[in-house]
Nucleic acid binder design. Structure first.
Lengths: 352, 352
DNA sequence: AGTAAATATGCAATCGGTTGCGCATAATAC
DNA sequence: GTATTATGCGCAACCGATTGCATATTTACT
């Protein structure tokens, strides 16, 4: 009577089902899991009783017993960047197909939070972790913990070679190279680059692509044209202001982030500078808003959905293998695509 | 020896710590939980041993025993809309402060997935659910399940009055009214409206605000100017095309979504129609990209971060109360803010 | 009929912490 | 010196589902 007070939950377990049917919890458990050792008659009875009693399986108990939760944790700097959202979607797609659930955690590019999140996921006993490293993270020790615990880890996009981990990235070098090549072909000769001071490989790779393209096309490199910032909208604005103050202005800006490029674009428009004819602008990432601006922004598409799917597939390979031998860490590199739009197109478009 | 094979995880438990210190697991548990009944000396010893053994608490086990997981589930249609991302952030902020973790689930506006997600969260034994209903959901029975199980549920933004649940929304009616009022003050007389055919209250409210503003200012209402669609970019484009085909074109468009408005804007620009002087355009939601377009888009800000915080606070109120008496469902309505930008500003701005 | 083999279910331990209750030993009181 | 109260920790049950092994009941087959 006391336990059936309103306000408290009924808490139906397999034992209640068992009791009702005069069988044991073992049988109920097996019936619910469609174990071939249980007769069809019993299975149907159990299913029916479960529905009647409004039974809700307790995954916590199962997870404890089985040692696996069928949950994989995803850590991204932020979920509201189209790129990350899309990767997550790709991962989810594959994971769900294999009856895994996914829990999304945001580090907000905050190192402390990233460390805490790893710990929380480990304590939550997720079966694996897929992550993209925060911008401010310079020490990667916390990413060693999952491996120590024997739970698989795969990194994507914002990765590091300091860890022996499988990773999926796009060829940032190639993407950047293509952008700069394109700008040069459009007649640009003083091409500025917005990059990040952070130790994140993607930015270093983009910088490398930028420099190599200049070198290959014998376009002079100028230190003053490379500007480091956090690459957000406001940073892009500030960087552009700085460039406009130069004795010799650039005739193109290639930002390692779309946000930075958008900031530059805004400043240029406010100053009445014509884009792309006076100064061309290109970004990186193909965020949706890049097609909304005027002119629309040339950028690099990262095939985020594909990246998510591939990351998940790679993850599950490791996952399956992790039981016995460890797989050798493997790096998958995807090819990006240059998306040419009005912000860099000086000649009339070929119209195909 | 066999259990210590490389490749398999060590699995350190409180029992190992206990063994090492010649005490019992009870004491270790209490020490780790800073129970006053344990001496400081023992606590320190336990902490030290835990660190040495690289102990990782198993939340699964604790959750099973305690009947609570310290996790709350959030369901949003999609995490990559700035609005939802921002609400989630607000919720997380409050939740983390109270040592709760948050797991984010996306329904992708898919009814089936929404139902499954509720079920998954229930089985995962989350301590509560905070959700925003998918666009295509017309049956809300699955939202009754958490309550039946005694776990608190709070809805935000995309809510319904068909459920006896606490909810946090903005005053969509007021926001829409303000937009239309503003358009009228700018001299618009044929104001079109993009809305959704879905049974989501936000859109119905915005439509109501639109109509009431017209009525109050004695601007004639015309059925042909109200267009229903899914309100995405492409829908906005199609709707705008449709409007341009009208014998008598509108002189303003108020879209219930920023995406729809952006689509309209694109079509207008492609057709060489001047915005705002020939046709003014306004959206709803204040998505970041609205400030990137040319002209920048007039829209309505929804104070998403605040909404998240308030939703979380309301949730925890219910949570604390749910032990004994149930709280009466409560509806919090936030005031939105009209953000006036170039897409509707026909007169030179006052420059303050 | 008798035994092997298949079928269906029960028993009890287990996963890793948590916690009410009880039992020492030590400290304080009268 | 005995009674009283703290203090610190151990014992064992418990949360709910899973599963190896044992048992009971049929069916099959020689």
């Amino acid at each position: 009577m006391a336990s059936n007070k309103m306000g408290s939950k009924p808490k139906v377990t397999i034992h209640h089902i068992a009791e009702k049917l005069n069988i044991t919890a073992s049988t109920v458990s097996r019936a619910l899991n469609d174990n071939p050792r249980i007769s069809e008659v019993t299975k149907k009875a159990v299913l029916k009783a479960a529905k009647q009693l409004n039974y809700q399986p307790n995954n916590i108990a199962a997870a404890l017993r089985n040692g696996k939760s069928y949950i994989i944790g995803i850590i991204v700097p932020t979920a509201d960047r189209a790129f990350f959202a899309s990767v997550v979607r790709g991962i989810e797609e594959i994971a769900n197909k294999l009856h895994y659930k996914v829990i999304i955690c945001q580090s907000y590019d905050n190192y402390e939070k990233e460390v805490q999140t790893i710990d929380a996921l480990l304590s939550a006993r997720v079966d694996g972790i897929i992550a993209s490293i925060g911008k401010n993270t310079e020490n990667f020790d916390h990413y060693k913990r999952p491996q120590e615990k024997g739970i698989p880890l795969v990194l994507f996009d914002r990765t590091t070679d300091a860890l022996e981990v499988s990773q999926v990235v796009i060829d940032d070098y190639l993407g950047a190279y293509k952008v700069v090549e394109h700008l040069i072909q459009q007649g640009c000769r003083r091409i500025a680059h917005f990059t990040s001071p952070k130790k994140v490989s993607v930015f270093k790779e983009r910088l490398r692509g930028y420099m190599d393209a200049l070198r290959d096309y014998e376009v002079p490199f100028s230190e003053e044209l490379v500007i480091k910032s956090n690459l957000q909208l406001e940073d892009g604005r500030a960087s552009m202001e700085q460039l406009l103050g130069l004795a010799e202005r650039p005739d193109a800006v290639f930002s390692a982030s779309d946000y930075g490029a958008m900031g530059a674009l805004q400043v240029l428009k406010e100053n009445g500078i014509k884009v792309p004819h006076e100064i061309a602008v290109a970004g990186f990432g193909n965020e949706p808003f890049t097609s909304f601006s005027d002119p629309a922004l040339t950028t690099v598409d990262q095939f985020s959905l594909t990246m998510g799917r591939i990351t998940a597939e790679l993850f599950f390979e490791h996952f399956k293998a992790s039981a016995d031998k460890k797989l050798v860490p493997q790096k998958t590199v995807l090819k990006p695509e240059l998306i040419i739009r009005g912000s860099t197109l000086r000649n009339a478009p070929p119209k195909k």
